[in-house]
Design a protein around this nucleic acid. Structure first.
Lengths: 342, 342
DNA sequence: TTGTAAGCGTTATCAA
DNA sequence: TTGATAACGCTTACAA
């Protein structure tokens, strides 16, 4: 455990002032390039490493971005995080990641920790049942940029990064209708969340536009777990008037639903067509493979991180950008192709 | 953007010294409990938040744990990370996560960043082709605890957290043999990595013990991607003497192999039995569902984080613990049950 | 182009 | 039980 080298040590060794050393190490313009070379070389030689805390303390900045997500361990979220990490890393920002485990209470605690950690900015996808955002007010008040992604909450001071969930829902359901479905079930999540509310709106819009009635009893609000998929299939079996198509807003849930339907003797897609959401790898593995909405997770992570970093570097004012919408699209596979030769 | 409250502000307001305030806020034993109550209340009232940087600078400690993983976006890894985050959060440690994207070069860069961020400890699962660990020497020299998990590198100063991969491989292959397989193929990853080398050893051990020959041409080293699974299936089809069982050390790769085999006209498990590794949710979705080794990912994350934190808190000396082995077990499903009525 | 010196907000040591 | 004071290592007016 050797002693830590500081800019004072380097300064003394080179008979320069600590200030000069600091400037050289930070690429300050007003410094002689020979001096700079000299200092850099000596720093390396002495095994100097910058003390981020001293620097942060002095500059009142942390080069750290906080991320709060419902869960780390879903394919979608880990893809988003991978995208964020990539961008942040390249811009030499650190990522502090925490999960709310879908609980507002834990989300509040996480927000507090992030606040105390003095993150330069915060990227959030809210928990299942968050409805107030008082716990983020502290950030807003202090001018710490706050950016929501995927599961967003509209706020005039915050930017949201989303896909067009209404359109995605519309596309999915329109596709089912075009395949001949006339009675389409919709399995979704908590309608408090923009993502689910919007997809439902898209579902309704597609029905309306094609002259089909909206039947509330066909909308099933669940936690979108695997069990929910199984449960949905069972419920379908017990319905007096069975649907001929189902749009599930999560691939894993959809896949479980599909499998259970098959076990119960349904033929997919002929008896009932299934469409999922996210384009999780699992959708390509099930038989028949699952039609779904491709969700650009990595891209969303990259855009979120980049926007925040640009804002922090003064390259873009995020307060003026209210919403960024990414492109998503329907991926047609065999679970919905009624006249398929699969 | 109001002014940040410091312990000086609180001290002034209560006509106490900053030292007393600091002590009260940190639950120092030698402080009057009335004073403590008073200070705590005032801190809350004034909206005080501790300045971690000043504290870190002074205490030479960061309460931050660094994590370097090959990829964030695999089911296995995100489960591990979720476990780590849970434990770290409860112990009020922050997690800085970065991914090497399977490249040694990036891993080296990540290590450097972590070093400069002065993490209190480091949790690492190495990249595909890392063979030296010079880039971690700096940590070891400085006495910063370094803990490897899953893909580990043996080092006398570092603890490893693993499952018994030899046994897992042995169990998988023994199961195949017991199901009547006599010619078993093995699809695995870079044998530099303990996980794959050990599983191969287990494979060989099982063969030997059951009097079956070891045929090197049946071992296929791949990157365990989905494409590798497909490729393996094709290769099987083209073999003059086809295997009747295959053990793939990754579920997603196994699933792709299985699906392709079916497409090529093989019956699974009757023509060829398939066993995977990890117990990824996808293994329950494929038909027939996949026999696999259950890997305790969340547990591994928790144990890794907890061990490190205990060490940091002086509750346990990690240097003396060389290896922690977690329990894993075979999960038999239908992809390997030759006489199944599935 | 370089140097001086004053903090940033804590905590640890020593003294009271 | 509390207080005074000196660091921790860096950055940045301001001065030279």
């Amino acid at each position: 455990m050797e002693k830590e080298i500081t800019i004072y040590d380097i300064a003394k060794r080179l008979k320069l002032s600590p200030a000069t050393v600091s400037r050289a190490l930070n690429d300050h313009p007003a410094i002689n390039s020979d001096t700079k070379t000299l200092i850099t070389a000596m720093a390396r030689q002495m095994g100097y490493r910058t003390n981020t805390f001293a620097s942060n303390l002095r500059r009142q900045r942390t080069n750290t971005i906080g991320v709060i997500v419902p869960r780390l361990n879903s394919n979608f979220m880990s893809t988003v995080l991978a995208g964020m990490e990539k961008v942040a890393n390249e811009a030499s920002y650190n990522l502090i990641i925490s999960q709310s485990l879908e609980s507002v209470k834990k989300e509040i605690a996480n927000a507090k920790t992030m606040f105390n950690s003095r993150v330069d900015g915060l990227l959030v996808s809210v928990a299942y049942d968050t409805d107030k955002i008082d716990h983020f007010e502290a950030f807003i008040k202090k001018g710490i940029p706050l950016l929501f992604f995927d599961r967003v909450i509209e706020h005039k001071q915050c930017t949201s990064i989303v896909i067009d969930n209404v359109k995605a829902g519309y596309d999915a359901v329109t596709h089912l209708i075009e395949q001949g479905c006339r009675r389409i079930m919709h399995v979704t999540g908590n309608l408090k969340r923009n993502v689910y509310a919007d997809r439902l709106a898209g579902y309704q819009q597609a029905l309306r536009q094609h002259g089909l009635p909206y039947d509330e009893s066909l909308v099933m609000v669940t936690d979108l777990s695997q069990e929910a998929g199984t449960e949905a299939a069972r419920r379908i079996q017990n319905m007096p008037e069975r649907p001929d198509g189902v749009f599930v807003t999560n691939d894993f849930c959809a896949v479980c639903c599909l499998i259970t339907l098959k076990k119960l003797g349904f033929s997919v897609p002929d008896d009932i067509a299934v469409v999922g959401f996210n384009d999780d790898p699992v959708s390509q593995v099930v038989e028949p493979d699952l039609t779904t909405i491709h969700y650009p997770g990595a891209k969303m992570g990259e855009v979120a991180a980049q926007s925040l970093i640009n804002h922090l570097n003064g390259l873009l004012d995020i307060q003026t950008t209210n919403k960024i919408i990414l492109h998503s699209e329907l991926v047609v596979r065999h679970s919905s192709l009624k006249s398929s030769s699969y």
